[in-house]
């Protein structure tokens, strides 16, 4: 049985970050874009938790709690703005949001 080391977690988090980045670059639905952002922030959390465990420190875990809080705030503001946009425009596709040249 192979031991799971910190570098495995870093590889996992890097892959998760890339999934988020590719999601933002290729998807056009704004809800999916917001989800991709959450994936990126969760990649950060995996990193922080793994480092925190390997360094036997609590700092990383505290940092990750702040990241989770920020992610929640971002989702709240994002959905609020999206609802305002939807009321005015009935659109959640990035391609339909074209009054300003995207």
């Amino acid at each position: 049985m192979m031991e799971v080391t910190t570098s495995h977690y870093v590889v996992l988090s890097t892959l998760l970050l890339l999934v988020g980045v590719v999601g933002i670059l290729t998807r056009r639905n704004i809800l999916v874009l917001l989800m991709s952002v959450e994936l990126m922030l969760n990649a950060v959390n995996i990193n922080l938790a793994a480092f925190s465990a390997s360094l036997q420190q609590v700092h990383g875990q505290v940092f990750s709690i702040f990241v989770i809080t920020v992610a929640a705030a971002e989702a709240a503001v994002g959905l609020g703005i999206l609802i305002a946009l939807f009321r005015n425009k009935q659109a959640i596709h990035a391609d339909e949001i074209d009054l300003l040249r995207w």
Partner: peptide
Amino acid sequence: EAAIKYLILGAFSSGLLAY
């Protein structure tokens, strides 16, 4: 529209920075 664009790209850049 401006707000949603700013939010998506701002959150994206914050994610990278946090990483």
